[in-house]
Amino acid sequence: MSTFLDALWQFSFLQHAMLAGLLASIGCGVIGSYVVVKRITFLAGGIAHAVLGGMGIAYYFQQPVLAGALIAALGTALFIGWIYLHSHQNEDTLIGAVWATGMAIGILFISQTPGYNVDLMSYLFGNILMVSRTDLYLMAGLDAIIVLTVIIFYKQLLITCFDEEFAQLRNISVTFFYLLLLCMVALTVVLLIRVVGLILVIALLTLPAAIALQYAISLSYIMLVASVLGMVFTSTGLGIAYEYNLPAGASIILVAAASYFVSTIFIQSILKKWRSQT
Rank of each mutant, 00 (worst) to 15 (best):
24 A>P: 00
261 F>T: 10
66 L>T: 11
266 F>S: 15
30 V>R: 00
244 Y>A: 05
34 Y>A: 02
13 F>Q: 11
116 Y>P: 02
69 A>D: 03
10 Q>G: 02
74 L>P: 04
159 I>D: 04
156 Q>R: 15
118 V>P: 00
65 V>N: 01
167 A>W: 02
278 T>C: 11
236 T>M: 14
43 L>F: 01
274 W>Y: 09
216 A>I: 06
224 L>T: 14
252 I>C: 10
109 F>L: 06
112 Q>G: 09
243 E>N: 11
13 F>H: 13
45 G>M: 04
141 G>S: 15
136 L>R: 12
94 L>C: 07
234 T>W: 02
252 I>M: 15
224 L>E: 00
122 S>P: 01
106 G>A: 14
106 G>W: 00
88 H>A: 12
95 I>K: 05
134 T>D: 07
258 A>T: 14
269 S>P: 04
40 I>C: 08
198 L>V: 09
255 V>N: 02
269 S>Q: 15
187 L>Y: 06
52 L>F: 14
113 T>N: 08
107 I>Q: 08
150 V>P: 05
66 L>F: 04
92 D>C: 04
32 G>H: 01
50 A>V: 07
81 G>W: 01
104 A>P: 05
208 P>Y: 04
233 F>K: 14
194 R>V: 01
158 L>P: 02
183 C>Y: 03
116 Y>T: 14
79 F>W: 06
7 A>L: 10
100 A>K: 06
212 A>F: 00
220 S>C: 03
170 R>Q: 15
28 C>M: 08
143 D>S: 10
59 Y>T: 02
176 F>T: 09
146 I>V: 15
56 G>Y: 01
8 L>W: 13
139 M>G: 01
103 M>V: 13
125 F>V: 12
261 F>E: 10
205 L>H: 04
42 F>C: 07
80 I>V: 11
228 V>H: 14
112 Q>H: 13
153 F>W: 15
103 M>D: 10
27 G>K: 01
43 L>I: 10
6 D>M: 07
265 I>K: 14
202 I>C: 03
93 T>C: 14
169 L>V: 14
113 T>M: 09
3 T>R: 13
249 G>A: 10
152 I>Y: 05
277 Q>T: 14
190 V>E: 00
204 L>G: 13
32 G>C: 04
107 I>K: 08
121 M>K: 11
166 F>N: 11
263 S>W: 07
263 S>D: 07
25 S>L: 12
200 L>S: 08
37 V>H: 03
47 I>P: 03
63 Q>Y: 04
